[in-house]
Design a protein around this nucleic acid. Structure first.
Lengths: 366, 366
DNA sequence: GCAACGAGTGAATCAATGG
DNA sequence: ACCATTGATTCACTCGTTG
């Protein structure tokens, strides 16, 4: 990897991957020298047995050695140690991002606060296409949490408000980001065609992080570099990176990847935003929001049928039960039915199609 | 408030608001007596100075006494104390929800894990209409985090998967919920027309929580009752509630509010149930009842295999013998197989899954 | 060539019951 | 308490093959 000199920090091994334990490696770097740290530490998943899909195929779980910790206490010590080392090398106005799931993120967040970092936001990555919950025992685990924190309460951290606003079609960027998981051509494969790393993050996530909280020429360090998404996006966006990684196999894949990355020219950085489709509004939300009361009666547009609303957003008419679409279809003897335009509610003596209520919700969502 | 006796827990002050410190009040309640706890504890906001909007109007911030803590240590002790007291009164299969923001939720989550609770999901409440970030210095704080945890790892917690799936238009409910904040007519006002409580939660949020993780007749306790959203939704949905609140002014508003709430009728409360809740029907009954004759041949759904029904309700295919599930699994080389949906029988030239016969028996059992 | 279909997969703390 | 058995359970997207 090429070594570039940075102003005021001549010893920094820029645009390199350093091999070894991240605490030791960070402790060997000069203090107050890094602008941003992005960290994707082990999540400490604590999986029990195997999990199979309904079609009996086995879920390829994260059971790597690097994710095994004996107890919360051991994990807390690990977390405290790397956060302490990270804070020393951060510039006074530097900041950190840490990503995690409910298994570890609460411990990470508490440790950040205990070490003197100042939390600026927690940001939720809402996955557009998460893995479902196969046993129907919990909510689909559809998000991960990122914590953004400055080195101290007084730090003048970098925040490119206008650039993020542009990325978000002219309205200020919120703390919840909808982005797809990393798959397809972006997902790195090893020689056997298997995924090279079990938890490769999407470049879109790092793109938003780096556009929002660094400037071109800034130094970005990733202490859990893996296959180098942070480095790839940093290089593309004209930031310098330092990667630290323990596993030689990951380093090899990352170096090949970084060799293929080219820095973008200014024009290429401009992203064209796709238009969003109308958001789907479940009928149940009308009930949850109190726009319809469970027990209220809907009537069909043609006036022939009535059905009662239930607390879970289904309808019931005698022993016919189901969604607004299913009950409509059943009553009409039709193969399908658009319940939104079929069902109406009486309000002040007037019939209102429930679709009007859906429009109202969509209005609020904008 | 009316006091209703619950089976096996005669001392519980159901459907009342108890005045006082929540730890002391909870410690006076019997252990293992509550099905669900919903808690909206102080967020420890640590606000510095006033915040003004671009038009110079002052933002009405949460600066109440009850949200002031001297240090993280004091907040941690407070959190540990109330979580400990809460865990004692929870039934073994009970669960807890705690809501918070980045100021406190990491400390709450870590404390939950330290006290022996088992996190089931973190759920993000994505606000449809959050307050914008007026200064443009951070991301719009557009969400809050809820943690759902059972009393212990082994607990058989309540999760109404099917009802939630219905609420979400037929696809399983995710860990990110888009719901509006509480305003308009739902927002309670005091005598001066000011908002009665600074952080009143929307009923839609509690609706989803209670539909998903309680059943009618369950006891729901809220140790930071405020103006009683938890109680109002619990009463509406036919659950019993216990509220604990320190501030007399909030108790007064909550009692008036609860007096206006009406319980929904039984039909409206009925919710789509899981198949698991259906009575078990042994395959042998199909043979005993003559719906299948010993010697008849079943074929697999994919058409690849056949097997003969035997008089004891087992199947046989060459030297493979056993239950409908065992033979299916063996033939497919799968770790397991649901024989009910795997095997079919020819009737009048058409393939009928044997599950249809089971449905018929269940129908008769009603 | 293109549409239709089927197979594969992603940070997962993922069962309940009867003997 | 443990063990064997029953049988419930998936969303969005990509890619390769078939028609």
């Amino acid at each position: 990897m090429m070594n570039t000199k940075a102003k005021g920090a001549p010893e920094l091994p820029l645009n390199t991957i350093l091999s070894g334990d991240c605490v030791e490696v960070m402790n060997a770097l000069p203090e107050n020298s890094v602008d941003l740290i992005f960290a994707d530490p082990p999540y400490n998943l604590q999986l029990r047995g195997d999990l199979h899909r309904p079609d009996n195929s086995k879920v390829d779980a994260v059971d790597d050695d690097w994710d095994q910790f004996d107890s919360f206490e051991v994990y807390d010590r690990f977390t405290r140690d790397w956060l302490k080392a990270a804070r020393r090398i951060l510039k006074p106005n530097g900041a950190i991002w840490v990503i995690g799931s409910y298994h570890n993120i609460f411990r990470v967040g508490a440790a950040l606060q205990n070490e003197g970092y100042w939390i600026l936001n927690d940001v939720v990555w809402r996955k557009a296409n998460p893995m479902p919950n196969f046993r129907g025992k919990r909510f689909t685990n559809a998000h991960e949490t990122m914590i953004w924190a400055s080195k101290s309460e007084k730090a003048k951290y970098t925040f490119n408000y206008e650039a993020l606003k542009e990325l978000n079609e002219g309205v200020q960027m919120r703390s919840d980001w909808v982005l797809p998981i990393c798959n397809g051509g972006e997902r790195l494969k090893d020689a056997n065609g298997e995924k090279a790393h079990p938890t490769q993050k999407p470049q879109s996530l790092l793109h938003r992080v780096l556009i929002g909280s660094t400037n071109p020429g800034d130094v970005v360090l990733d202490p859990f570099f893996g296959t180098g998404t942070t480095g790839a996006v940093a290089k593309m966006l004209g930031r310098d990176f330092i990667g630290i990684e323990r596993e030689e196999a990951y380093i090899k894949v990352a170096e090949e990847r970084l060799g293929r990355v080219r820095k973008l020219d200014k024009e290429a950085l401009e992203v064209t935003r796709a238009k969003r489709a109308e958001p789907r509004v479940p009928f149940g939300q009308l009930v949850e929001r109190g726009m319809l009361r469970p027990g209220e009666e809907l009537h069909s547009l043609n006036g022939r049928y009535k059905a009662k609303v239930r607390a879970d957003g289904t309808l019931a008419q005698a022993d016919i039960k189901g969604s607004i679409h299913q009950v409509g279809a059943k009553l009409e003897g039709a193969p399908s039915c658009n319940g939104w335009t079929y069902w109406c509610i009486k309000r002040d003596g007037k019939s209102i199609p429930i679709d009007a209520m859906r429009q109202q919700i969509r209005q609020e969502m904008r």
